[in-house]
Design a protein around this nucleic acid. Structure first.
Lengths: 196, 196
DNA sequence: TGTACATCAGTGAACGCGCGTTCACTGATGTAC
DNA sequence: TGTACATCAGTGAACGCGCGTTCACTGATGTAC
């Protein structure tokens, strides 16, 4: 493989440095997949041989898929538990966002796996994201379903931004709570204030 | 290592399945670090032997650090280039957010490396995030510097949420542009509308 | 009641892979005398 | 002007590691006769 490149002449060795950095940046043009815990690490944590995993899962992908499904189920259960069904839509929305943020804070790695990764291909149309969107949309006052979807997406963006940044930049000067940050962002969206 | 665990009796084999999933979820309690491109992959892309990297970098970490620094410099340059310095603060803020979102869209892997990863330890206090925060804060009308920081953080959350979700959930029903989503979220923040 | 057998829930060794890192080397280019 | 030598910009083979996956096996537990 070396030989593709002609060797630098005497003073130009420094150029490889810049080329290496540039090559790395080129490699970063496509999104980088977040790695899930390794099959061996999971087996180790269970006190079991790696090959034992294959008794229950056809491959690492199948195991990951099961993990994601389970995580999504737990998140959904948490959101259900936090939902004051008798309250007003605005209050329910607020409770939903709070539960979402709490879950993200308590399960950072899991949050990343669900929301900082492309959905597995066979989840198309019913991944964690789209389900959450519907849940949000149902609580919005707009009558136009299209506007509702758009607003729900924006709320999701806001709350995801709060959750994600707090996970990755813990040393930022966070003054308020995650929930109040989310509230401040969501409060301004058209049609939401009118309903409160 | 196996032996820690007693073998299941006859009908209970299915329980390992649940234990494996639970163990994986336990492992996901701590945040998962996004991997940077491997040293060997970078060397390969340059047509150079892996060991040649060590002529310019003491370790993989040093290379990664240089990559992150360079990426951050490029982002900053893009933001500078997009800044209409003669315009009003509100217009400059809008331009800044637009440039940020464009950069994220055009360099998804790089965006992840900068903003979906903890800052390298020796960057504490001047990482991409905090720099960006100052930049935002300077464009805000609030006089109280503390309120300005808080608002800047919220804006960052909003715009990060839009950038990040678009990268990871491309199949969501994105109707508007990233920029208009960010605008809608930011527009409602206290003190911003008054300035426009 | 005893025994042969099937099944279940795994084990353990091995494979090939890519990884970061080391180390001795090589061959062209410049410099000293 | 020629030649010995130092330096520069790398190469190439090797190391030990963790990984996903395979395969032949093992030993306890239940079932059939």
């Amino acid at each position: 493989m070396p030989g593709t490149r002609q060797r630098r002449t005497r003073g130009e060795g420094e150029r490889l440095r810049a080329e290496l950095v540039a090559a790395a940046i080129d490699l970063l043009l496509e999104p980088q997949p977040l790695p899930a815990p390794s099959l061996r690490a999971i087996a180790r944590a269970c006190g079991v041989a790696p090959s034992a995993v294959y008794m229950h899962f056809a491959s690492q992908d199948a195991l990951n898929y099961a993990v994601i499904t389970e995580l999504f189920g737990r998140l959904r259960a948490d959101l259900d538990a936090a939902d004051p069904e008798a309250a007003s839509p605005a209050e329910r929305l607020d409770a939903l966002l709070g539960a979402y943020l709490t879950w993200a804070e308590n399960h950072p790695g899991a949050y990343q796996l669900l929301f900082e990764r492309p959905d597995p291909l066979d989840t198309e149309g019913e991944g964690p994201g789209l389900d959450l969107l519907d849940r949000l949309a149902r609580l919005l006052p707009d009558t136009d379903p299209q506007a509702r979807r758009a607003t729900a997406l924006r709320i999701w963006c806001a709350v995801h931004g709060v959750a994600s940044l707090r996970i990755h930049k813990p040393s930022a000067p966070w003054a308020a709570t995650a929930r109040s940050d989310a509230r401040a962002l969501v409060a301004g969206l058209a049609g939401l204030l009118a309903d409160t």
